[in-house]
């Protein structure tokens, strides 16, 4: 065993003598910043002109529904800022208004985003809403667990559009930065 000890000591000594290592700074890991930006569609609403004309002028659709994408811990704990993009196309013959409300678990309205859309042929609207330091509070996003959509016919219920097919399309997508590390 003594010979073994000498042998291993010599080997260790040899490696210690010949091996070197440039200065390493493993604390650099603390500086690592991982902030990916993810984007995805949020809500798509489509209605034909027939649906609008089937009810008297006024609200023709109102609906609350759960939306947990924002309140998931992975998202809400990490989100830094973001933007929600809305795009509305109206090829019906009537002016419309549409309101999107963000609700929390207690059904309290955290924020409201109203839209007024002209009838065809000029009925297109695009809007970016920023959240974070340069925009609305991120708490709106973090605490949203439900969305309410209210669509209102601001015109008549008899006219028909010359554009085929006459539709209103509400599109939306979100683009958010998340702090992973």
């Amino acid at each position: 065993m003594k010979k073994l000890g000498v042998f291993l000591s010599l080997i260790t000594l040899m490696l210690c003598v010949v091996s070197c290592m440039e200065d390493q700074d493993f604390d650099q890991y603390k500086d690592l910043s991982v902030v990916p930006v993810f984007e995805s569609s949020i809500l798509y609403l489509e209605s034909t002109e027939d649906v609008i004309n089937n009810v008297p002028p006024g609200p023709f659709y109102s609906q609350d529904f759960s939306f947990n994408a924002f309140s998931e811990a992975f998202f809400s704990d990490r989100v830094l800022d973001g933007v929600i993009t809305y795009e509305i196309e109206n090829t019906t013959s009537k002016p419309l208004s549409l309101t999107l409300e963000f609700l929390n678990d207690a059904d309290e309205v955290l924020d409201s985003e109203p839209f007024t859309i002209d009838p065809a042929p000029s009925g297109t609207l695009q809007r970016d809403v920023v959240y974070g330091d340069t925009g609305k509070s991120l708490d709106i996003i973090r605490n949203t667990s439900r969305i309410r959509v209210v669509a209102v016919n601001e015109g008549d219920s008899t006219s028909t559009s010359n554009v085929s097919p006459p539709l209103v399309k509400f599109k939306s997508s979100g683009k958010f930065s998340l702090r992973i590390k």
Partner: peptide, 22 residues
Amino acid sequence: TVEGVEIILPDAINDPNTDFWQ
């Protein structure tokens, strides 16, 4: 393939209790 929550009228009116997210 996902394009977010989709509400298509008049189908959605006929089933007002739909939980779109779920």
